[in-house]
Each structure stands twice: as structure tokens, then as C-alpha cells.
């Protein structure tokens, strides 16, 4: 017969084992992708798949020769940070208004914003393509920044709104009595208090922009193409070169994956969307 303490410990061991197994299973595809990127093409295609092999860097050398990784990566960085910045500049004042200047229409405005996010992008692809062509925005970073800002704006407004709502209104009231303008209220009071929540919003926006693959595939050709487009360019004609495909995929995901790992504590703390009290 187990004592209570022993059964608790047994329980913890069981939970830990199960959690590790689930986590390893979920992580396996990523592990396998990275592993395959260091194989020769022959090893990559071997049956049964090999866990042990002589690692090689030839795939990465090949990618370096064939396409300019840093060109695509730079585009991804500029587009992601550019539209996140633009999105925050629009979303923070909007959320400020909704949280602290609530009117009868606030809730329906918020839900309307979210509903624009439900429009399938294909529904407006052709008009956007034509408008972009006329405006000279096709295959430009500016064009993608505009699109990404608009598609992520509703979620950003919503997130920032939920963080601002948790800030007691008397704090703003006090600042206002001291003669603070709205801009000062946001800059001096709300941003420092809401730092954590805003950081989570920025993180989520960066992840979504980095990985967006509909507009980037359809609106860019080469000069503004981000990493999603580079990966896609390796997919069709080279379906059989899996080691190279793995290497290019690893390169495309590595920056955001490392970034995500470093910031996961902030993400886990901040992604509540106001659903938790």
C-alpha cells in the first residue's frame, strides 16, 4: 500500500513522463526537419529513415549559391517590424479610446473590426492586385507592410483593448487633473503600465507577419519577397531534393523560432485576450 506522499510522487512521475512524450511527439517534425537539413540527398531519401548519419553542410552551401538568403530574410524583417510598428501606432490610440472613452457603439465597433478579419483574403485578392498594380505597389515592401498592418490591426486593437481595460481609470483621471494631454496619458501612463501586454501584442504581430503566406505569395515576385516566398520557390520543381528543402525551411524558420523561444515566457504570460480575470 502506497502512502499519500508516495502516490503523489508516482503521480508526478507519470505526469512528467506523459508530458515529455506529448511534447517530443509535437516537436518531432521540427527536429526531423533540422536533422534532415544536415543529410546528403541520398541519406534524406533512405528507407528506413536514418537517425544516425554523417552530417554535411552541403545543402546550406547550395542554398547560399542559389539564392540570396539574406535578401529574403531582410525583407521578412523589414516587413514584419514595419507593419508591427504601423499597427501599434494605429491600435494603441484606438484601444485607448475604446477602453477609456467607452460609448454605446464601442462594443459593436470592436466586433465589426474583428469581423473584417473574417473576410477571406481571396475574396479581395483581384481588386487589391489591380489597385496595387496601378499604385506601383506590387512587389514592394511598402505594399506588404500596408496589407499586413490592415489584416492584423483588428487583433492588435482587441489585444491592447483588453490590457487597457484592466488598468483602473482613476490613474488616468489623476494624470488628467495634473494637466496631461491624451498623448501624454498614453505615453507617460498607459505604455509603462501596459508594457507587458503591449510586448505580447508586438510578439504576436511579428509572428503572424513573419509567417503570412497568402499575400506574400500573391503580391511579390522577387525584390520584396520574404522568406515564405523563398521556401515556396523551392517546393515545386525540386520536390525530390528534400535535404535542400529542409535546409531552406530551417533557415526560413530559425529566426522566428529562436525569437519565439526567447520570448515564450512573455507570450505565455500575456496572451489572455482578456479571457482571464
Amino acid at each position: 500500500m502506497l502512502t499519500l506522499k508516495q502516490s503523489r510522487r508516482l503521480q508526478t512521475v507519470l505526469i512528467a513522463t506523459l508530458a515529455w512524450l506529448v511534447a517530443l511527439a509535437i516537436f518531432f517534425p521540427i527536429f526531423w526537419m533540422i536533422l534532415t537539413s544536415f543529410k546528403t540527398e541520398i541519406d534524406a531519401f533512405a528507407t528506413p529513415p536514418q537517425l544516425f548519419f554523417t552530417p554535411t553542410l552541403e545543402n546550406y552551401v547550395h542554398i547560399d549559391e542559389r539564392s540570396d538568403y539574406f535578401h529574403f530574410a531582410w525583407n521578412s524583417v523589414v516587413i514584419s517590424f514595419g507593419s508591427t510598428l504601423a499597427g501599434m501606432l494605429l491600435a494603441v490610440p484606438a484601444a485607448y479610446s475604446m477602453a477609456f472613452f467607452e460609448t454605446k457603439r464601442t462594443k459593436s465597433t470592436l466586433l465589426w473590426m474583428l469581423s473584417t478579419k473574417m473576410l477571406p483574403p481571396v475574396g479581395v485578392l483581384v481588386p487589391i492586385y489591380l489597385l496595387f498594380k496601378d499604385a506601383g505597389l506590387l512587389d514592394t515592401k511598402t505594399g506588404l507592410v500596408i496589407i499586413y498592418t490592415l489584416i492584423n490591426l483588428p487583433i492588435m486593437v482587441w489585444m491592447v483593448y483588453t490590457y487597457f481595460k484592466e488598468i483602473p481609470k482613476d490613474i488616468l483621471e489623476a494624470a488628467r487633473l495634473d494637466g496631461a494631454t491624451p498623448a501624454q496619458e498614453i505615453y507617460r501612463v498607459l505604455l509603462p503600465i501596459g508594457k507587458g501586454g503591449l510586448a505580447s501584442t508586438v510578439l504576436l504581430s511579428l509572428i503572424l507577419c513573419w509567417n503570412e503566406a497568402f499575400w506574400s505569395l500573391n503580391l511579390t515576385a522577387s525584390s520584396a519577397a520574404p522568406l515564405t516566398a523563398m521556401v515556396a520557390s523551392y517546393s515545386s520543381p525540386e520536390g525530390l531534393f528534400w535535404a535542400k528543402l529542409s535546409a531552406v525551411s530551417t533557415l526560413a524558420c530559425a529566426p522566428i523560432l529562436i525569437f519565439g523561444w526567447l520570448s515564450q515566457k512573455q507570450l505565455v504570460r500575456g496572451l489572455s485576450f482578456g479571457a482571464v480575470k
Binding site: I30, A213, S249, C253, I256, Q264
Partner: peptide, 17 residues
């Protein structure tokens, strides 16, 4: 970290992998 990692992978990559 392992559990949330797939969320950081771009859709084109996860589909191809």
C-alpha cells in the same frame, strides 16, 4: 517550449515537412 514551437513555423514549411 517544445509544445508551442509549431506555432512559430510558417505554414508553407510545415506543409512541406
Amino acid at each position: 517550449v517544445m509544445l508551442i514551437s509549431p506555432f512559430f513555423i510558417m505554414p508553407t514549411v510545415s506543409a512541406l515537412v
